[in-house]
């Protein structure tokens, strides 16, 4: 009998209070509870984390790297969004 595939989960870990959860890798597990345990054993054997999120990999929608040009174009053309776009006389001091 062909082996039934084990669902894939993406693992996110908060390493310290005040930091965001960060993607660290993935695990295979039958359900969310086992995915959490597998993530703990696989990615936090040396106190790397205070909190773990597991998310079914299939639930993630990703942008297409080949389309990154058109996707991020609006950000490149709007230089007036940066503080350095505006000229302030030196006498005014730091702003």
């Amino acid at each position: 009998m062909a082996e039934q595939p084990m669902p894939l989960w993406e693992v996110f870990i908060r390493s310290r209070t005040g930091l965001a959860h960060r993607h660290v890798g993935s695990v295979h597990a039958a359900d969310a509870e086992m995915a959490l345990q597998a993530a703990r054993d696989t990615y936090t054997r040396r106190g790397e984390g205070l909190s773990i999120w597991v998310v079914p990999s299939a639930a993630i929608t990703a942008s297409d790297p080949a389309e990154k040009g058109p996707l991020f174009e609006p950000t490149a053309s709007k230089i007036y969004r940066h503080p350095s776009f505006y000229e302030i006389p030196e006498e005014v001091g730091h702003m």
Binding site: E3, P5, G25, S26, D41, T42, R45
Partner: peptide, 29 residues
């Protein structure tokens, strides 16, 4: 602890290989 680490290393690596479109089951097979 060392042997458990080796198992963990295998898992990180299978996960890295899976991002290339091959499944862990296939590799293990």
């Amino acid at each position: 602890a060392k042997v458990q680490d080796e198992g963990g290393h295998g898992l990180y690596l299978y996960a890295a290989a899976e991002t290339l479109g091959v499944s862990r089951e296939e590799l293990y097979e």
